[in-house]
Design a protein around this nucleic acid. Structure first.
Lengths: 337, 337
DNA sequence: CTGTTAGCGCATTCAC
DNA sequence: GTGAATGCGCTAACAG
């Protein structure tokens, strides 16, 4: 029913070995024969069966992405970067969306065993030692994106530095009371985004001899609603901060709304800096720390592809560190509004 | 190196046939034997090779999603719905992101041939006859989401009705000059979102004896930036509309910004209704037409899974029609601000 | 009930 | 150079 390599061989009057050779551009085929085979391949519209190919080659030609909450713009962009790179190299992408920690553990421990993917790309996920063992034991190529681990290649950004820049910017603009809206420092998925940025925040405060107020640090989820609520709490303080740094643009947008709702002016009354530089930010005039999200995905995919090429030797992990960049817009500067 | 069915069989002292049987819960295995096999399976941490299984079964256990611009919140939500349903049934998901029409054509024509997926889920994509032939010829199960075609099952929403509700709502609130911000009516991907909603828009205008002004219809992309620009153009008119209906919340957010920037008040000066009900909308107070995005994905996946179950008989296509719902918030009502 | 065998479609030795 | 044979890991049909 489906056209196989045998059909092609027969029709072209050659053996399947030869067909296989032209399929894999082996040099050991005479040009006329190659042409003839190529010809009948298009005639029959033959497509090699990837399963059979995989079974024989012991490769699946697909790589797995383990990603939490891919609802967040950040993850979507990273995913696009990955997809873009992978498709160009003929790899398929298979998605594992882990919205809960149990799922993450499950995948991280089971996935390496099932030979469904040639490699794994983990996004914003921290590895426990159990996972590390499971992965290294089967020698599954793996690279971390937006996360790090000594044993594996990774591409990450400087969260501490990004936060430092943001807070320093706020201080330079004359702010002394700076609020911080973040996710949980002890993130259930273990990713250090919040805690690293928190560290940067505190460092800069300290360097400028500014006190750290527990109440100025509001913790929530990475969404607008949560940012809104956090800001409400900040506004309810006896002496609210005059500037807010949020760990994501989405949260910042929520905060913006809370401010506006209570009649506050941005940036006159409150300065605001987010993180990510998602699409709407540019547009809403939100100052932010731009992460190269698309590129992070791209580089991560490249790293993994490289590992797949020279799979013979165990390469030492390479860590790519991508720069973040402060984007100053209206929500943080008096001048531009 | 990797543990196979033979290893299990040997260790358990049975033939591979038996192992295969317990793997596929065949009733023809005595309980003691089954237990013994199960036992050694966990002992060896055996995982059946999906490629081999697929090759033998002629199934891949993965389904493909063809999706344009999955950067848009709408697509992300649909995707989540699909992912959610599929994973529960042990299916894997493989993503084909088609950002350009050529890619779409390529995938739609090649994918059916390569036996990489058991079925296809097309999101917001319109089929040309060439595609239809390619698909039906190989009898690849396929379901359309947010689109329709007589030959296939689909899950869609009432775009005309949704637009009607939105515009009617605006008129009821006293507006006579209603602008419309949409995508191209002759969408390159062929999806009828814009044109259907445009139809609804015009219907209601007509029913209320309101004239249709060409200039009130601004066409752009489905993003904030474009919504912003469209609104700017509307504002530049000698007699701008007092209400705007946009085909997506993102566009509406852009429009909102444009209004605010020129000092306009919402909803006092301008009423605004979007489409989709994405996360931020609730939160920004944007009136909108809510689409059950997550559910659309879910239902689409279910439909496809059903088709995969009873693959023997060619079932007649079933079309699920999901309701949309007007969500009235601050941007369209005087009362609530 | 259970072991054995024959494919599934392709890559890869080997001989020729 | 090229064809035939073998194996990849598993399911299913066939004997016991």
């Amino acid at each position: 029913m489906n056209v196989t390599i045998y059909d092609v061989a027969e029709r072209a009057g050659v053996g399947i070995g030869t067909v296989s050779r032209v399929l894999n551009d082996s040099p050991h085929v005479r040009e006329p024969t190659r042409q003839r085979v190529l010809q009948t391949i298009t005639e029959l519209n033959y497509q090699p069966n990837p399963m059979a190919r995989g079974l024989s080659l012991k490769r699946t030609n697909t790589i797995g992405i383990v990603i939490p909450f891919f609802t967040r713009p950040f993850f979507v962009e990273v995913l696009r970067g990955i997809d873009n790179e992978l498709l160009q190299h003929g790899y398929n992408l298979i998605l594992y969306d882990v919205e809960q920690k149990e799922l993450k553990d499950y995948y991280l421990r089971e996935l390496p065993m099932r030979r469904r993917v040639d490699g794994l790309l983990l996004i914003s996920l921290c590895l426990e030692e159990v996972d590390v063992r499971a992965i290294t034991r089967v020698r599954l190529p793996i690279v971390l994106v937006d996360s790090r681990h000594p044993a594996f290649s990774s591409v990450s950004v400087d969260n501490v530095g990004g936060a430092r820049t943001a807070v320093a910017h706020l201080i330079e603009n004359g702010h002394q009371r700076i609020g911080f809206i973040s996710g949980r420092l002890d993130d259930p998925f273990g990713f250090p985004t919040s805690s690293e940025r928190f560290a940067g925040y505190r460092q800069v405060l300290k360097e400028h001899d500014l006190p750290f107020h527990e109440a100025y640090h509001q913790i929530g989820e990475f969404n607008a609603q949560s940012g809104y609520e956090c800001m409400k709490r900040l506004l309810a303080l006896a002496q609210p901060p005059t500037a807010i740094f949020a760990t994501s643009d989405t949260q910042a947008l929520g905060a913006l709304r809370a401010i506006q709702e209570t009649g506050g002016q941005v940036p006159q009354d409150f300065a605001l800096v987010g993180y990510d530089d998602i699409e709407v930010s540019q547009y809403v005039g939100l100052s932010t720390i731009r992460q190269p999200m698309f590129r992070m995905g791209q580089e991560g995919a490249r790293l993994l592809l490289q590992q797949l090429e020279n799979s013979q030797d165990e390469p030492e992990p390479t860590c790519i560190r991508l720069p973040v960049q402060m984007v100053i817009r209206e929500t943080s500067t008096q001048s531009l509004n």
